[in-house]
C-alpha cells in the first residue's frame, strides 16, 4: 500500500526547513538525527552573514 509519510535523514538547517514545509502541508514527517539535538552546524555558528543575525 502506498504510504503518505516522508523520511528526512539529517536535522541541520536543510532537514529542518524541509520538515517544516512538509508539516505545513499536513504531511507526516520522520526526522532522523544522529546527535542528541537538531540544528546541525548552524547551531554552532555565532551570527550569520550577510545580515549578522543570531542563528538560533
Amino acid at each position: 500500500m502506498a504510504s503518505n509519510e516522508v523520511l528526512i535523514i539529517g536535522g541541520g538547517i536543510a532537514g529542518m526547513q524541509a520538515a517544516l514545509d512538509l508539516g505545513d502541508m499536513g504531511i507526516t514527517v520522520h526526522l532522523v538525527e544522529k546527535n542528541p539535538s537538531i540544528g546541525g552546524k548552524m547551531a554552532q555558528l555565532d551570527k550569520t552573514f550577510p545580515t549578522n543575525d543570531c542563528t538560533i
Binding site: E5, I8, A18, H30
Partner: peptide, 15 residues
Amino acid sequence: YVDLEVAAVIVATGY
C-alpha cells in the same frame, strides 16, 4: 528500532 513506511525520502546529512 522503529519501522517506518514512507512515500519519499530526503537526504539532508550535510557536511
